[in-house]
Write a protein that binds this DNA or RNA. Structure first.
Length: 148
DNA sequence: ATATGCTCTAGAA
DNA sequence: TTCTAGAGCATAT
């Protein structure tokens, strides 16, 4: 297993991976040095809208969380869905979706930042909700640029 | 068995 | 319209 990190604003994005399988992604203040797949730096620079062919280890399996992560992975770049909508698609309760997002081992790959509350407010994000806002902002401006 | 959570809806105020 | 209460369910402890 390899590990590395890149920057996103004030934060470091630490990535644990093997070949094209991403095991863990974390936002931290300081992170171990090392290379990350090019998809990360390009995505975070607004120069890429997908992580393909990278995949998250969290989407495989038959658990309820894996189902939820698969549904979340379907949300297109620049769009959002509510916790309730994801819950309906995965046939579970909205709070379970909240739990799954809170424990998402691979944010970005499984775009949990695109899941917002039903009234459009951002909802939570650890370690800092601002990261979620920044990611949504990045996707909004990037998708607008790609469409001009 | 109980506590917890990045929620949601309905009904009261 | 804003606020509160409780439903509802997978996981962690």
């Amino acid at each position: 297993m390899r590990q590395g990190a890149c920057s996103f604003g004030l934060w470091k994005v630490a990535v644990d991976y093997d070949d094209t399988v991403i095991h863990r992604v974390r936002f931290m203040r300081t992170a171990p040095e090392g290379p990350v797949p090019i998809q990360f730096t390009r995505f975070l620079a607004g120069k890429r809208t997908t992580f393909a062919p990278l995949t998250s280890a969290a989407v495989s399996g038959d658990g309820k969380y894996a189902q939820i992560y698969r549904e979340v992975s379907r949300i297109p770049y620049g769009e959002t869905r509510s916790y309730g909508e994801i819950a309906a698609a995965a046939e579970t309760h909205p709070r379970v979706v909240g739990n799954a997002m809170a424990r998402n081992p691979t944010p970005l790959i499984v775009p949990c930042h695109r899941v917002v509350a039903s009234d459009g407010s951002p909802g939570g994000f650890s370690p800092d909700p601002d990261i979620k806002k920044n990611l949504l902002q990045l996707e909004k401006t990037t998708s607008r640029r790609l469409f001009s």
